[in-house]
Design a protein around this nucleic acid. Structure first.
Lengths: 227, 227
DNA sequence: TCAAAAGTGTTAAGTTTACACCCATGA
DNA sequence: TCATGGGTGTAAACTTAACACTTTTGA
């Protein structure tokens, strides 16, 4: 069979990307959701998405879409998977590849987000979402949780400097369960890559809390992570 | 923006599925690979694949492709992910979704496999594969290992009745490490869903070994799995 | 002076690992 | 009778979980 016939005769599809964007604010995990002011499904809540173009990889399309919404580059992203049911999009047949992103809630472009009609929503109080976006969110949440428990990816949700209380609250939000403070701090002190700095955070308590930083080089050497 | 313009103007792509088919034979994990007797890349090794059609979901396409090769229905499959680099397929732009399947090596249609020019290959001695199929295999292997360690999916690689030595050898192949026989059996006896049967397997030893069976109902009740 | 968050060790319970010999059978 | 794989328990090491009080400081 000649090469050109191998492909020809097969159908082609719109391929989209959809982004599950996690943020950590006020001790809660949030998702950045769009209130769609465009058709189809205008007025309903959805994930931020876009179509893959001919000159970009699927991963690059996801990065582009995230950048268009938040202004951010170099964001931690993982592919969640392909969603390919025939009727998943009510308009046309679209195969979508979902990605989740972890962003530091202080760093993004608020105007750009506003102009897209996007809002942070508590992950435990999500509105109804269009299409199969709920399935995407659930799968992303599971993957994110599992990932955060095996590698120090959760730090992408924090500012560069953070207190141990912040870190604990973050992991409590990720795992959906509370933790013992002393056991938590014991585990942190076993991880050499979580470095004490000279900074004190006085914004959250009168006494002030020591601030820590994640040191990637040390992590790459030790690879020890357990929270 | 009217609905029809939302999609129009975006490019469309061939979407393929590729299957990483695991089997367990002679104490080794194997993959079922195709020696391609068709273009492109005729003569080279590849995964079994095919194109998604308009009337089927991506998951269904993967099931169809697996059935075409092995004759099997109702096989355990998991999506590995979408592979979408611009140049991943040397012929045309194709976005591929990879799946892994776990099959009992006794059950498939050998003639059908032969007619596709497919062969079982030790997973630790794989040949060079076309395109990005090596990446797919690596990701599938990682996922399969992780999955097999958290849920009793590995049993899909065994016949319905199996001995504890078979089970241990399987998990040793999956994890790539040997295990202590007494500790292994202790763990098995903690899992109520691994049921003793009356059958004795005399084919592998003179003394004969008791055969066990996995009981799905008990697993669903207890959800206890640790190997 | 007191409310609010930061910080700090010990012990018991549970889990994991290491380890060696006898059994049954067919060739 | 002996080679081959089947089958069995215990103790030490390690890991995890439970638990409560003192410190600092700004309002």
């Amino acid at each position: 069979m000649p090469v050109q016939n191998f492909y020809r005769g097969n159908p082609r599809f719109y391929v989209a990307v959809d982004c599950i964007i996690f943020g950590f604010n006020n001790g809660k995990l949030n998702l950045l959701l769009l209130k769609r002011n465009f058709e189809p499904s205008k007025g309903k809540w959805s994930l931020m998405g876009g179509f893959v173009q001919t000159d970009e990889s699927v991963d690059d399309a996801a990065k582009r879409v995230l950048r268009q919404l938040t202004g951010l580059e170099e964001v931690y992203m993982e592919q969640v998977g392909a969603f390919g049911d025939v009727e998943r999009d009510t308009g046309e047949r679209v195969i979508s590849v979902a990605y989740y992103a972890l962003i530091n809630i202080d760093g993004y472009d608020r105007e750009q987000v506003q102009s897209h009609n996007a809002y942070w929503t508590d992950i435990n109080e999500l509105p109804k979402l269009i299409f199969d976006h709920k399935d995407m969110v659930e799968k992303a949440r599971d993957m994110m949780k599992r990932n955060a428990s095996s590698k120090p990816t959760g730090f992408n949700l924090l500012p560069k400097l953070f207190t141990l209380t912040q870190l604990q609250t973050l992991y409590e939000a990720i795992y959906g369960e509370t933790m013992d403070k002393r056991n938590f701090r014991k585990r942190v002190s076993d991880m050499e890559f979580i470095e004490l700095t000279d900074e004190i955070d006085k914004t959250r308590s009168k006494r002030g809390a020591r601030m820590y930083r994640m040191n990637d080089d040390i992590y790459r050497k030790t690879r020890k992570f357990k929270i």
